[in-house]
Design a protein around this nucleic acid. Structure first.
Lengths: 251, 251
DNA sequence: CGATTGTTTGATCTCTCTCAATGGGCGTGG
DNA sequence: CCACGCCCATTGAGAGAGATCAAACAATCG
């Protein structure tokens, strides 16, 4: 097993100790993409009053209470579905700054939110959330962008799940991880895997064993280097992209 | 092949002849879920000026020009991806009232919009669309609901694609069709398949042959009756739901 | 009415799942 | 501090579901 706990940039231990239920001290209030960062002091305060921040250990299911709008402050949250015979799927995952909005018109909810790492979330009261958005166009735009991004992630994910083979799925996932890390400080070619092998398998519609074999194969092909359990070094972007795009196994 | 062209409630021929580029005569302006229905006359007019309505024959690719926000007036539009070796996936599909918003922060677009039936779409100029939404809260809420619904569809779809077997996928799809038809006038137990077998296969991550076999099997099990190519009668909801939820093949 | 496209059926092959066993971290408790 | 057990990751051998290939058939379109 790797020497690194599932931390990466996804969980920072010190942040998890920060005083809760106070938007001003919250990491999100400084994340420019997040709507919180665009709120005025009074709006932040108003939201504070009706929000409930909480820290989750790894592999914890979020309870339903309090309301269907949840902001992810730190760590990774997955939407997990379990079939009758125990098969499991993670249909989407959310990281720092994502707004999980479970309000919906028609269907019954079909899955549970589970922390895939140690995580920090903030449950927002729907009415307070909504009224703040109506007041503040900047915040509304930020939330809309996040929603659209989730849609695009979903579309990309469906493409991966649809007709790709195991190696192709993994290549695609590694590139997705690299993109989703984004801006940050680390080495350019590094991809941080934000979850365990089992969860990765559930996300990509594979079996954990197949994930293991696939990563090994990509390594043997010289496209990646599995540094630790949660860090992958990308050795050849173009080739990896071609694999992810279904170019067969001939590099 | 069935006796029915891909019409169902998804395309109504007469509607497609209606004068274009005029929101007032547009079907969407009367669809309560759609944001258009909530606009004032002047807002409708303003949007009219910057919109471009067009009718697409079946299997037509939408060109990129004009802007990334598209409203579906009638028919079905799919987001189609093609891998290097020709494998195809439809990662999502959109029907009457859906807003396809292709604006996105980071990634490059990875797919093409294709009509899966004869269809009628309306391309909206981004700035006009955005300013109308900022003026009109009702319209904004309607669009947000539509976005959220797309996310939830995506989540459900990922669940189907992840670890389900062919029959389970098909059972799930039929139920999805039934739900998405929704309110309408027809027989309760009828599900309208909004696309051809090939497209259905691409949507569910299967091969057309497998779709054919799967539907036949569901029919033999007495759960459905394939009336025509585009109409399925659901004979047992509870059993179909159990199959869709992974209850194996023992009904 | 012929050409083309889309659907169905059958036989074979292949990739992934499944089952089983090993080995490496990590936390617990002696 | 070390031994134990648990969980997770990995590896191998066998089985099954779906893909692939090939061909017949039905339906649409010009």
């Amino acid at each position: 097993m790797g020497t690194l706990p599932p931390i990466g940039r996804y969980v920072q231990k010190d942040l998890l100790q920060v005083s809760l239920n106070n938007c001003r001290s919250c990491a999100l209030a400084e994340l420019s993409e997040c709507f919180c960062a665009r709120l005025t002091d009074t709006q932040l305060e108003q939201l504070s009053l009706h929000s409930k921040s909480s820290v989750l250990p790894n592999k914890t299911t979020l309870e339903d209470g309090m309301g269907p709008v949840i902001a992810v402050v730190e760590g990774v949250i997955g939407m997990q579905h379990t079939l009758e015979d125990g098969r499991r799927t993670i249909s989407a995952y959310y990281t720092k700054g994502d707004i999980i909005d479970l309000r919906q018109r028609s269907d019954h909810l079909q899955g549970a939110l589970v922390s895939l790492t140690k995580a920090h979330v903030c449950r927002l009261q729907v009415t307070a959330f909504q009224s703040v958005l109506e007041e503040n166009h900047g915040a509304w735009i930020a939330v809309s962008e996040n929603l659209r991004e989730q849609i695009h992630h979903g579309i990309g994910h469906a493409t991966d799940l649809g007709k790709k083979q195991a190696i192709e799925k993994l290549a695609s996932f590694i590139l997705e991880c690299h993109t989703r890390n984004g801006d940050s400080d680390s080495v350019m070619a590094e991809a941080i895997i934000p979850m365990s092998r089992v969860h990765l398998a559930e996300y990509m519609g594979l079996q954990a064993e197949t994930v293991s074999r696939g990563l090994r194969k990509l390594e043997q092909m010289g496209l990646i280097k599995v540094s630790t359990m949660y860090e992958v070094l990308i050795l050849s972007f173009p080739k990896l992209k071609r694999i992810a795009n279904g170019a067969g196994c001939i590099a």
